[in-house]
């Protein structure tokens, strides 16, 4: 096990002792006799990992006989992976630092502090806001990055028997919610006073998309996988599919189902531990920001495959927001997906 960089922990893909929950199981490829490298770190409050495994064609080109210990034996190869992982991690951490709502210095915090006036925004933020706007429209207001005030009223996670908010509280909170109140122009944003933006629903998936781009650029001859706390994306056309476990919300940390990922992204929406029991009633964990109340019949978890992680993540979120209609919605989209209900 090598340890370099800030918080980036490396291990050979042959080391299976670290593999938990949502990971790839290398034993599946034992017969290819190909090993790779895994980098782990913490970011965005999740366990994140990068996996790189040489493509067979590439290893063959370098000679079959030495391929047994390819990566560890090939010093330059190992160094290149290390470097690439570090760059990709830096990109993830950059996005985390920029869009962390809880950090004093983040760009997002500055934006939220400047509510009530016009402010300049950069291209990246504009892109994310435009995407959020698109999703807001698509979902008819159910996906809303300004919804935090109303979401915060529902004390999910504070134990299972807290009190639901009153209608009056919700009405008050709704006054500070509504993406359409934002004015987004090419160079600037008007965030009305009292409102705030939370990019938590997009930033992690966006970071995964960016990280895989960094890795692909630097390690074109490797099969690659980026996993940011369950939102993951593989490099296109991996020679050997990555095996992904989808966790069962009833038995946390135990893979419920193994699926394979050969290219593209898989993202999961669902907070399996979140529901609220009050006076015998169980309140759903997905709140519709346009009303302030839980959506009926939301699944526990929705996983969706799509070419890009932001797209997979958003489809999962939109499906979740469909409540009872989640399955119908995803079938209508023709996506490969997996829905877990209680």
């Amino acid at each position: 096990m090598i340890s370099t960089g800030e918080g980036l922990k490396f291990s050979s893909l042959a080391d299976l002792d670290n593999q938990q929950a949502v990971i790839s199981d290398e034993s599946q490829y034992g017969h290819y006799n190909l090993k790779g490298l895994k980098g782990e770190f913490m970011a965005m409050a999740s366990r994140c990992e990068f996996l790189a495994r040489p493509k067979q064609a590439a290893s063959k080109a370098q000679g079959d006989k030495t391929q047994g210990d390819k990566v560890q034996g090939d010093k330059t190869g190992g160094e290149r992976i290390t470097q690439a992982f570090e760059r990709a991690m830096a990109e993830v951490k950059r996005i985390e630092a920029k869009y962390n709502r809880f950090s004093e210095n983040s760009v997002l915090t500055q934006i939220n502090r400047s509510a009530g006036d016009w402010q300049a925004i950069d291209d990246e933020t504009l892109g994310l806001l435009k995407f959020a706007e698109h999703c807001y429209r698509l979902s008819q207001g159910k996906f809303d990055i300004t919804a935090e005030p109303v979401l915060a009223l529902w004390p999910f996670g504070d134990g299972e028997s807290a009190t639901p908010p009153s209608d009056c509280q919700i009405e008050t909170a709704l006054e500070c919610v509504g993406f359409e109140r934002l004015i987004i122009e090419e160079l600037r944003l008007f965030l009305p006073y009292g409102m705030g933006i939370d990019l938590g629903g997009i930033a992690k998936e966006y970071a995964a998309d960016r990280a895989i781009e960094v890795l692909r650029r630097e390690l074109p001859e490797y099969d690659l996988l980026v996993n940011l706390g369950g939102d993951m994306i593989a490099s296109p056309c991996c020679e050997c599919p990555w095996q992904i476990g989808i966790e069962d919300p009833h038995k946390l940390d135990t893979p419920a189902r193994v699926v394979t990922l050969k290219s593209g992204a898989l993202a999961t929406s669902g907070h399996s531990r979140r529901y609220l029991l009050h006076q015998g009633k169980r309140y759903g964990h997905i709140i519709d920001p346009s009303t302030g109340y839980p959506i009926k019949g939301a699944p526990l978890s929705v996983s969706v495959f799509a070419p890009q992680c932001v797209v997979a993540g958003m489809l999962a979120t939109l499906a979740m927001l469909q409540g009872e209609g989640a399955e119908t919605f995803l079938v209508g989209q023709g996506t490969v997906h997996h829905i877990i209900r209680g």
Partner: peptide, 10 residues
């Protein structure tokens, strides 16, 4: 319209 009603004009 109010600033938050300008969505269509964006």
């Amino acid at each position: 319209v109010k600033p938050w009603e300008r969505g269509q004009f964006a």
